[in-house]
Design a binder for these strands. Structure first.
Length: 467
DNA sequence: CGACGGGACGC
DNA sequence: CGACGGGACGC
């Protein structure tokens, strides 16, 4: 009832939930309502009539709550006689009022869905996942990189009937983000650049972080190594983007043996974008330089790491050679040990990497509650927090660690290129607790403003916002 | 005093 | 061939 009068943006919501009927002019709203209510919750029945004569024009619209109900009704009622002696009715999914088109919506456009799936899914996995509850599948395919054959984590599933596709979209796990697929020939596909060869290459190989040139081919394998480079336990890291001491600390502390870390300031107390780090052994310093020089942190900001002469490790050229040999040996041990270097965390690739710490280091003055599990990713978001970071956003894993501790955290979203983000909660109380505890606080050297987010601006939604 | 993402093709 | 009404009300 109250749903009958909504702003114009809500016409045909959800999509494909409204039927277009062609009937005899004698068919009334009551007749339609009586027959069609068997298939679901009817929101509105409207028989189009001539303004003057009030006579039916033989055209009606039936709005259902759900697309699956409308589709089932269409499938069952198309071609049926509502009343003895009247002509069989035609039933279609109505064109969205905004579309302006009066072309019949074809089954072709209503039977194929587009889903996001784990990259590990095979076509059989896809078929099994989407056939069990929603019925037999005519065809399914996973989108793959043409050259490598690697799955892009996207799939198409073609059903026999529109009601199957609609039910799958409504009832499958939200993580699949199922939507109706655009017909292949109609739209020439908006943009293919997401998985360009250059990007695939970047994802696949990562020579900078997984090769160990010291072990195989001596010291000077990185083209930028100059003969004048010195090897010391002391490093200088330079960053173009502003970076905090705690961020530098966390990064370099991933390699064991750090015993000193300090941001450099100019005479006015402003950050120079440089920090000095010292390790208690040469091997760790060499390893840290090798791993972190050129490392992107935060993403897009390439760090530069060089050894600096702190006076303690200065030696004659011969002594330096000896020290490089020592460093190389240590690197070799660290990288080739059968069980791997115990102090370094391992990623799924089996290589130690500072990019994927398993549980982030969190430094803060606030007394934080214990960790809590995240809410399921398809939970309904009841409250969002808007967080402003200074000077830079904290890494995602740190944010998850900190903001999950009040319960029901669904997702962290950082706005790209801005120092703000959203924390999505399934329970209002969790969000309010997090805000009360964390607003104005400092975490890993980053100051946070934490407040309730304004509701998002609603417009141009082809698909309902997932939050 | 900062503000809203992600995903496209073979019988 | 067969395509778009009715009536709305709180910060």
């Amino acid at each position: 009832m109250e749903d009958a009068f909504r702003p114009s943006t809500d016409l045909d919501d959800p999509p494909n939930s409204r039927l277009f009927l062609v009937t005899s002019k004698s068919i009334t709203e009551d007749m339609i309502r009586e027959q069609f209510s068997l298939f679901g919750e009817i929101q509105d029945v409207w028989v189009v009539k001539d303004k003057q004569t009030k006579e039916s024009k033989g055209v009606s619209f039936v709005k259902f709550t759900k697309s699956s109900e409308a589709c089932t009704a269409m499938e069952e009622m198309h071609g049926k006689c509502l009343v003895e002696g009247t002509k069989p009715i035609k039933v279609f999914i109505a064109q969205a009022r905004s579309s302006g088109s009066h072309r019949d919506v074809e089954d072709e456009e209503l039977t194929r869905i587009f889903v996001m799936i784990p990259k590990t899914f095979t076509e059989d996995d896809l078929k099994e996942t989407f056939k069990v509850e929603y019925g037999d599948i005519e065809y399914c395919i996973i989108v793959k990189n043409k050259t490598t054959g690697e799955s892009k984590g996207l799939g198409y599933v073609r059903y026999h009937k529109p009601s199957q596709a609609a039910t799958a979209i409504e009832n499958c796990e939200k993580t699949y983000r199922a939507i109706l697929a655009e017909p292949r020939n109609k739209t020439p596909a908006p943009d293919n650049d997401y998985f360009s060869p250059a990007r695939a290459e970047h994802v696949q190989g990562d020579p900078g972080m997984t090769s160990y040139p010291f072990v195989d081919s001596g010291f000077h394998t990185r083209g930028d190594m100059r003969g004048t480079d010195i090897i010391t336990r002391c490093l200088m890291v330079s960053s173009r983007a502003s970076i905090t001491q705690d961020q530098v600390y966390s990064l370099f502390d991933l390699i064991p043996g750090m015993d000193y870390c300090e941001m450099q300031q100019d005479s006015y107390g402003f950050s120079t974008g440089q920090a000095m780090i010292r390790y208690n052994n040469l091997g760790s310093a060499v390893y840290a330089k090798n791993k972190l020089d050129g490392f992107e942190y935060p993403p897009g900001n390439r760090l530069a790491v060089t050894h600096i002469d702190d006076g303690q490790d200065r030696r004659s050229p011969v002594g330096r050679m000896a020290m490089q040999l020592v460093a190389a040996q240590m690197m070799s041990i660290v990288c080739n040990a059968p069980t791997g270097p115990p102090p370094l965390r391992k990623t799924s690739t089996g290589y130690p990497s500072p990019a994927v710490p398993q549980s982030p280091r969190v430094q803060t003055d606030v007394a934080l509650p214990p960790l809590q599990k995240l809410a399921p990713s398809d939970s309904r978001v009841k409250e969002r927090l808007f967080v402003v970071f200074k000077p830079l956003p904290l890494p995602m894993d740190v944010l998850e660690d900190v903001f999950c501790r009040f319960g029901s955290l669904v997702e962290v979203f950082l706005v790209p290129g801005r120092n703000v983000g959203y924390m999505k909660y399934a329970e209002r109380k969790s969000a309010d607790d997090a805000m009360a505890t964390l607003h104005g606080q400092m975490v890993n050297g980053v100051k946070m403003k934490v407040m309730r987010a304004d509701p998002p601006k609603e417009e141009s939604h082809k698909r309902q916002r997932t939050y």
